[in-house]
Design a protein around this nucleic acid. Structure first.
Lengths: 238, 238
DNA sequence: CGAACGTTTGATCTGTCTCAAAGGTGGTGG
DNA sequence: CCACCACCTTTGAGACAGATCAAACGTTCG
């Protein structure tokens, strides 16, 4: 069945994404199948990895959402980035690597060990591209927090998530499941949940989006992107 | 003379930093010497690399400050991170890599081609550690912008810069040269230059720091770090 | 001496926060 | 099948951090 997913009979988000990054060869597919056999679940709110602790082994996120998060001594919380199926967790090239941030499960998730990849192989290239995109998302987050207003921050983040979920086949046209509360959104966007609520209402009134608990639909992603000057992350000339 | 610097007779900030990250072996030193022979200057305000363009070759920043920056269509500007002597620029593992951000020289700088390093060598480890620290700095920037107030943002950034400059031997005890205006500081911290000015005055009044054009002195870095809950980036258990 | 650049100051405005409470909604158990 | 609970979302009123606009003040340097 898992092999079947690789052949495309069933969509497996994580694999869809990796294959979208670069065309994988037979050894890569074999390695992925092997790793999938060691998949294991992690419950919502549990840490996937913990800041400052040594990284046991790099992981591949198979299903569910996770987030990198930082907690301040006084209780303030900042989500640094969101991790979606197909994203890598803790892939470092140096020995005795420490996790630079905690990763917490935002929903029930499943992960598996990251299949090892030799330098120069297609799988390695996929990982490298994935890492570059991750970096792009961090830069986008910095720009959002530093120079966008509340309305723009929300739209920009939702557009990014929509693009990423489209890449792994998890978004249906303009809508997608979003296992986040307005409060977590606020802690990602440097706002309060009260203000996120008001800005979401405004966006709905203006017809930009629809919001149900756990689900969002963007009326016109391309138009919204134009409206706020959002550009998707690009890391490879292909 | 350049060989002399490697032997420690003269401090070369970029090399000081790389050696601080991991102990380099003879081949690494040879490769670095070779690269230093191809150093070239870039003038202040000039682009070192440009967002969206293919990366010609990865670089090592030898002297001067650079910054990763993003410009919005309407003229808003966000500095994403600062690059100091010893920092890597554009080191990617995948083919046809595009620069995810523009890097601009904040002062006159010199760069050289990044000496190639095979996987598993000490030099490669130094690069990997450097990349992990870069990521840590991006995460710190996100937290600053998302959850710190103006006063905390300024202190936190100055502490980070002080730590990094100490690592490459460029800070003298508690003071360091800072080739930034209050305006650039504002564009890094998501504030206006007027407000940065007022917060700097307040910090001076409270005795936390001294500011001259191009130079800062922190009265008590450790105390300030404790006061605002600042923790340095750590990426390796060593 | 003037021009360019960076810093400083003042007055006013506003986007977002804070605090507090009410309303929905889905799930669980009796 | 209803009652209750936990968790989100929504609403209101008031406060404040930081923005905006505009101008003056210092330095440095050609």
């Amino acid at each position: 069945m898992i092999r079947g997913q690789l052949r495309g009979e069933v969509r497996e988000p994580a694999l869809t994404r990796l294959m979208a990054l670069t065309s994988l060869d037979a050894p890569a597919v074999a390695a992925l199948n092997d790793a999938l056999a060691h998949a294991h679940p992690i419950r919502v709110r549990r840490d996937v990895i913990t800041e400052g602790r040594e990284i046991a082994e790099p992981l591949l996120l198979l299903s569910g959402w996770a987030a990198r998060v930082r907690l301040l001594p006084d209780g303030r919380r900042q989500f640094l980035s969101f991790l979606l199926p197909g994203d890598l967790i803790g892939w470092c090239d140096h020995p005795y690597a420490l996790a630079v941030s905690t990763v917490v499960a935002m929903s029930d998730v499943t992960v598996c060990p990251l299949p090892p990849a030799e330098t120069g192989t297609p799988l390695h290239a996929a990982y490298a591209i994935s890492r570059a995109m991750d970096e792009g998302h961090l830069l986008a987050q910095i720009t959002r927090l530093g120079r966008l207003n509340a309305q723009e921050r929300i739209s920009d983040l939702l557009l990014e998530l929509h693009e990423r979920l489209t890449l792994n086949g998890t978004a249906n046209s303009n809508g997608f499941d979003l296992p986040l509360t307005q409060e977590t959104l606020a802690d990602a966007l440097g706002l309060t949940s009260v203000h996120v609520n008001r800005m979401l209402q405004q966006a709905r009134r203006e017809g930009d989006l629809q919001w149900r608990v756990g689900h969002v639909r963007l009326s016109d992603p391309a138009g919204l992107a134009r409206k706020i000057g959002h550009a998707p992350v690009r890391v490879s000339a292909r």
